[in-house]
């Protein structure tokens, strides 16, 4: 695990690039063989259920569940941090688990508090 080269991940990048290289031609071929009629400008309007679109598609739009995203920013990092401990659990002494339990307790408590807050104010 230690001292792993970044070059080991090159295959992932290769896979990513191969998929792009293999799929972009599909779009290009599709563009080549499919009909392209620009006769009707209504065709290019955004979907508005058969009505003429009103207003902007990209607006100030507030989703009420915003606290969850804020929580994610914090707890995602913490969850990943747990992996540093989890992957070496078999090698470290058992006493090292105690601070981790404390950390888990803090994380759990904080999460419960955040959930309570987000549930109390339904809307931000």
């Amino acid at each position: 695990m230690v001292g792993e080269l970044a070059g080991n991940y090159s295959t992932v990048v290769l896979m990513f690039g191969f998929a792009m290289a293999a799929m972009a031609p599909a779009l290009v071929i599709s563009r080549m063989i499919s009909p392209r009629k620009k006769s009707n400008p209504v065709k290019f309007l955004p979907m508005e259920c058969g009505q003429v679109p009103t207003g902007e598609g990209r607006t100030h739009f507030m989703m009420q569940y915003y606290p969850y995203i804020l929580m994610f920013v914090v707890f995602d990092v913490m969850a990943i941090f747990l992996y540093a401990w989890g992957s070496v659990l078999l090698e470290v002494p058992k006493i090292a688990t105690l601070p981790m339990l404390g950390f888990l307790a803090i994380m759990f408590g904080a999460m419960a508090f955040a959930l309570y807050q987000s549930g109390r104010r339904r809307i931000w």
């Binding site: 992932v12 990048v13 896979m15 990513f16 690039g17 191969f18 998929a19 792009m20 799929m23 972009a24 599909a26 779009l27 071929i29 599709s30 563009r31 063989i33 499919s34 009909p35 392209r36 009629k37 400008p41 065709k43 290019f44 309007l45 955004p46 598609g57």
Partner: peptide, 30 residues
């Protein structure tokens, strides 16, 4: 699907709109 016309909405951000499906497949492949 490959022989159907690709319609890009008028005010769309074209490069991103074109790239998104390809990127989606590529990420899944990764």
């Amino acid at each position: 699907l490959i022989s159907k016309e690709i319609i890009i909405p008028a005010k769309a951000d074209k490069p991103i709109f074109w790239a998104a499906p390809v990127l989606f497949v590529a990420t899944a492949a990764a």
